[in-house]
Write a protein that binds this DNA or RNA. Structure first.
Lengths: 197, 197
DNA sequence: AAATCCATGTAAGACGTTACATGATTTG
DNA sequence: CAAATCATGTAACGTCTTACATGGATTT
């Protein structure tokens, strides 16, 4: 289960509360793993009961107290064990691709808006990643040289950037295909004036 | 739930048994959605009980009988409804990226073998996709012109090909980063002969 | 006054994985 | 004769998602 390990890595990078972890999963860690706060709270509890984490109650003024979790030695050891185990290359689950193949049995043109919406979302993510890259790794305020942890974070971020660029190019390809098919649909072999069923 | 819809699309493309679907999920549909035979049998039963599918018992000689499922009108309607609903752009779950970030707290060089193994798997998938593309869409035996369904299958396959190419390039980047870090680890600022802790 | 943020949680249900089970036929 | 292929399923368990619930502080 990689959620355990993703949480351990994130807490090693910086201790924090369940709420803070949930925010990180919307940002940097979220580039490659998603989780909701419900999942996170459950796993934090389990990892603490297993001794992998320690908690510290942090009272706050004007805010609910928070529980700050840190990685304990057994947690670090469990992570290290996992790092040395081989894992399966992941398999995709891509709803949009199911839709595209399904469109053959419906109206392909009806998918155009949906694909354009996905295009916008991915363009937004790319812009966000590029901003983060400039801020943390390649801009004038970035540390020089980067330490090992930062180099590794950077190469993961480059993966996210490459993924978004590839996806955007593919969505352009999909849009071109859908446009071709819908203009083709109006035409029979003899030309625009041909009879239709 | 996209497994329902992936099964409906696959059965619209060609009716078949649970076993045959499981094989397809290892191949063409599996480019973008995975499922095991246990999941498939459960969903087939449910879809049939809901009236979305019809079954036909096909006796076979020297083999267990099979149940051939086809999509009924309510199933087609359910698929069409889903096609017109917006879906969320998917979020990644990439174990290897978790490992790469985790490597900062362990030995980055220990990841090299694992990354090379993933590289090989993705290279194999790419070769497999390219073979399929040549056979079905771009080679001399492919139909000309392709119909709408084939064009849509092809654009999805192009997505799989782009994904594998992007991933392979990224894994090269990861390997270069890991090699740089492990050669750097042996060196202190003053050069190879510097003292170590 | 309403919405959003911080901060934590419970509960129910859907979904997915792994292991187990059967049995004939074909291939090596 | 052993292993793989075809074909279907059950059971148990683990994970993930969605909805519900609370309550003060801050922002609009």
């Amino acid at each position: 289960m990689a959620l355990d390990h993703a949480i351990l890595v994130s807490l090693l990078e910086k201790p924090g509360s369940g709420y803070e972890l949930a925010r990180r999963f919307e940002r940097s860690i979220g580039y490659f793993w998603t989780a909701t706060h419900q999942q996170i709270y459950r796993v934090l509890k389990r990892l603490e009961s297993e001794g992998a984490l320690t908690v510290r109650d942090v009272p706050q003024r004007g805010r609910p107290d928070k529980k700050e979790y840190s990685v304990a030695d057994p947690g670090r050891a469990a992570l290290s064990r996992w790092l040395h185990e081989p894992i399966e290359p992941e398999s995709l689950r891509h709803d949009l691709a199911v839709k595209i193949r399904g469109a053959a049995f419906d109206d392909p043109a009806a998918l155009i808006d949906e694909v354009e919406r996905h295009h916008q979302v991915h363009s937004g993510r790319l812009a966000h990643y590029l901003t983060g890259e400039l801020r943390d790794f390649t801009g004038p305020d970035a540390p020089v040289p980067l330490d090992a942890g930062q180099e590794l974070q950077h190469v993961v971020l480059r993966g996210g950037i490459a993924y978004e660029r590839m996806t955007i190019a593919w969505l352009d390809d999909v849009l071109a295909t859908l446009h071709t098919l819908s203009s083709r649909a109006g035409l029979a072999v003899g030309g625009p004036s041909a009879h239709s069923a």
